[in-house]
Design a protein around this nucleic acid. Structure first.
Length: 415
DNA sequence: GCGATCAGCT
DNA sequence: CACAGCTGATCGC
């Protein structure tokens, strides 16, 4: 892309259009209720939750992108000042409520920004997302994949969230006379709590702000703020400690369950693990159970994702001090023009398309896998896409009506 | 006093 | 060490 006009999960500099993948705090640094910089595109669920996170935010800056639909933005090319169309589609990222990845197409080619995502092997949602993704890129190379590389290392092995949820229910049912507290964040893990609630036919206590989120998400029956109605409580993760559990146990037998995104099998400690599936429940002390429930993809899921879409380049969007070797190192062999063409060819065979295809080889030179630099800071950092641009002259939204290349006009979308 | 940023903690 | 996110200190306005 020519030096761009779009920012994804980056809010500090001037762009013509801003895209938000999801509402977790590390993706909204720089975003505030006083936002005035430009239009902000997000999913419908994210828009619904927006005022909880940013009270007083001027909602006229929000634009909803429905999942699976092509939209067109007419932006200005900074260098020439001429108008150029950019097409974008949001696809379910299965990370937390409202989370999406963004697929961009334009003169710059085809680029996918995953945001944080989980790509489990099976399930309705992943199958839906898979067909959406393949349908969107089937006839083109994917030039750049901006990848959630949080666990992009073969040592990161953990079970599906469904399997982890079953482990958690087993822990609860094996402690029939205990109170249960589960550590969660302000957004995410709703599917886990719903699974517990439905399987055990009990309500789950949440704090008042969290109940509001649950209601906005449409979950009215399974949650309560009345302590007396249930022995299972979901509490803010930062309030969850050994001291808390010890204090609670002076009043009532209580266990804590931490559905944790921590790297249970870290590279340095792998030799200490005797559980090859990565599904072990860690019993930190007599009160606390840590269960490997992750909203990020494990390594094999990342690998499967890359083999599915066969990008020419990969850039990690997460860098951290622990990555002495960039994790994308492990996936280098899955990148490149030949692989991209192979995907296109396979897709055509599958669909029995008779038309011949001339693969675009203009970007042949970019055959090596480009990866993000490893950070030196202590904190996890996002290497966001930041295409510096000039103020927007005109941003119109059009909807793609046909499955072909033609893009047709449609209505403006406003909240 | 407010917002942005960062260190520290879990 | 690492996640994601809160708290509190500090800095600039």
């Amino acid at each position: 892309m020519e030096s761009g006009m779009i920012s994804v999960d980056k809010w500090s500099s001037g762009s013509q259009a801003y895209f938000l993948t999801h509402l977790h705090a590390d993706h909204t640094v720089g975003l505030s209720s006083k936002w005035r910089r430009g239009l902000l595109y997000c999913s419908r669920i994210t828009a619904k939750l927006f005022s909880c996170k940013f009270p007083g935010f001027d909602l006229s800056f929000l634009r909803v992108l429905d999942i699976g639909r092509w939209y067109s933005l007419s932006l200005t090319t900074p260098s020439s000042g001429s108008s150029t169309d950019i097409y974008v589609k949001a696809i379910d990222a299965q990370h937390c409520p409202g989370s999406v990845m963004y697929l961009f197409r334009g003169k710059f080619g085809c680029k996918l920004y995953t945001g944080d995502f989980r790509w489990e092997k099976s399930g309705n949602r992943v199958e839906n997302a898979r067909s959406m993704l393949l349908d969107a890129i089937k006839n083109e190379k994917l030039d750049v994949l901006y990848l959630d590389n949080t666990y992009c290392n073969p040592t990161y092995i953990f079970p599906s969230r469904e399997a982890a949820a079953k482990q958690i229910v087993d822990i609860i049912t094996s402690h029939p006379n205990h109170d249960i507290i589960i550590g969660i964040d302000s957004l995410g893990k709703e599917d886990l709590l719903l699974y517990i609630s439905r399987t055990l036919n009990i309500k789950i206590w949440v704090w008042p702000e969290r109940l509001q989120i649950m209601h906005l998400l449409g979950f009215h029956e399974n949650f309560t703020t009345k302590t007396s109605l249930t022995r299972v409580r979901a509490v803010p993760r930062y309030s969850f400690s050994i001291e808390t559990l010890e204090g609670l146990n002076m009043l009532q037998p209580t266990i804590g369950i931490m559905p944790s995104g921590l790297p249970w099998v870290s590279p340095k400690k792998k030799e200490c693990s005797n559980d090859i599936s990565g599904s072990a429940i860690t019993n930190h002390n007599e009160y606390i159970f840590v269960v490997p429930y992750s909203d990020h993809s494990c390594f094999s899921e990342i690998q499967e994702f890359i083999e599915l879409i066969r990008p020419i380049n990969i850039r990690g969007i997460v860098s951290s001090s622990s990555c002495h070797i960039d994790p994308c190192y492990y996936l280098d062999h899955l990148c490149g023009t030949k692989q991209a063409c192979w995907r296109i060819q396979r897709q055509h065979e599958i669909e029995e398309v008779t038309n011949s295809v001339e693969a675009d080889e203009k970007q042949e030179s970019e055959s090596e896998c480009i990866v993000s630099s490893t950070g030196v800071g202590r904190k996890r950092r996002l290497d966001q896409v930041d295409f510096f641009g000039i103020p927007v002259s005109r941003v119109s939204l059009l909807r793609r009506l046909s499955r072909g290349v033609k893009i047709a006009n449609t209505e403006y979308i406003s909240l």
